[in-house]
């Protein structure tokens, strides 16, 4: 600082900032709160002095300004945190809910619209489409009598054994009024195809009693079909529940206490296309605490964690059952 070569120039003996620093240092050293220990200074030398200056904040940058700067930086940090807050929404999973049932065109497995008249009568292959949400499978069936002729399915009243209440099944659609669609999720414990599937009339024989899983019929199912004059049934191989597809998938045998929900179909006679437009009957998932389903299948939609909506198109996938005989 004191440069000896610069005698000609007028240089200040002490810079103002150094002067203030010394003044502050001296004040701090005299103060009884932070007394400067000269004995320790003698022992430890300049290390003690430097530590002392640092400890008592008598540094060259004055404390107030430093705190102000610190405040500004903490301000930027706080603003950054505020910026992250909307990002926290990332951890909230989006709930999938659709306000109503979509009208979905049913597509064949090759992606082109499914023609109603092209659905085989009493098809032993399982045809499934997802509706109204993905992961909600539904059968589509073209029902016929035991000779394989399409059969008009009339409207019917379906009873829910669990609650004793009833609803009206609207009947079949299509050129022969023979096409129906039901949820493919068993109302007993939720088994899905291939465990639950349609048994065409040609399979309603005692030979099926000893067929391997998932194609085993029970004697009770055969008997119940005979008594209610159903040419064919939907049967679940998990626990033996049986449904009557000719009468709105009403319960034929337990353990199920609920019929399969019906998917409402709309047939466009000019294009021969089929549309799914809604569900009736019971909700696919019994959400009540007592396992009693709502009669309003719409309740599935609000609460659904069961998948994303299928949108305005849904594609058929086909599954082979009766592996050995077909």
């Amino acid at each position: 600082m004191n440069d000896d070569n610069n005698e000609g120039k007028k240089i200040p003996i002490l810079k103002p900032s150094d002067f203030f620093f010394l003044q502050k240092l001296l004040r701090t050293m005299r103060s009884p709160k932070s007394k400067f220990d000269s004995r320790e200074f003698a022992e430890k030398g300049e290390d003690y002095l430097f530590n002392y200056v640092k400890k008592n904040n008598v540094g060259p940058i004055d404390q107030g300004r430093r705190n102000f700067l610190k405040g500004l930086v903490i301000g930027v940090a706080a603003v950054t945190v505020i910026g992250i807050i909307p990002g926290i929404r990332e951890i909230v999973p989006p709930t999938v809910s659709i306000s109503g049932f979509p009208k979905s065109l049913i597509l064949a497995s090759d992606g082109s619209p499914l023609k109603a008249s092209s659905i085989p009568v009493n098809n032993p292959l399982v045809m499934i489409f997802e509706y109204p949400l993905k992961s909600e499978p539904n059968f589509i069936l073209n029902l016929g009598d035991s000779s394989g002729k399409p059969m008009a399915i009339p409207s019917a009243t379906v009873t829910i054994p669990q609650t004793g209440k009833t609803y009206t099944f609207p009947g079949g659609v299509g050129p022969n009024k023979s096409i129906v669609s039901y949820s493919a999720r068993c109302q007993h414990l939720g088994c899905v195809p291939p465990y639950i599937h349609f048994y065409p009339p040609s399979y309603m024989t005692s030979a099926q009693l000893s067929a391997p899983s998932p194609d085993t019929l029970t004697a009770a199912a055969l008997l119940a079909a005979k008594t209610s004059k159903a040419p064919a049934v939907i049967h679940c191989d998990c626990h033996g529940s049986t449904y009557d597809p000719y009468h709105g998938a009403a319960v034929l045998t337990g353990p199920t206490e609920r019929p399969l929900p019906t998917v409402l179909l709309e047939w466009d006679s000019s294009s021969d296309y089929l549309y799914a437009t809604g569900d009736i009957g019971v909700a696919t998932y019994p959400l009540g605490s007592n396992g009693i389903p709502s009669k309003d299948p719409k309740e599935d939609l609000d609460e659904s964690e069961f998948g994303s909506p299928v949108g305005d198109k849904t594609e058929i996938s086909t599954l082979t059952v009766f592996g050995k005989s077909s």
């Binding site: 540094g59 430093r66 700067l69 500004l72 950054t80």
Partner: peptide, 23 residues
């Protein structure tokens, strides 16, 4: 948010300069 983070980093870096380097 990236730009805000860059500005936070820059502000701290400037603070470091003022308090430690220039000091």
């Amino acid at each position: 948010l990236g730009i805000v983070f860059i500005m936070l980093g820059e502000a701290i870096s400037l603070y470091h300069y003022v308090v430690y380097v220039a000091g």
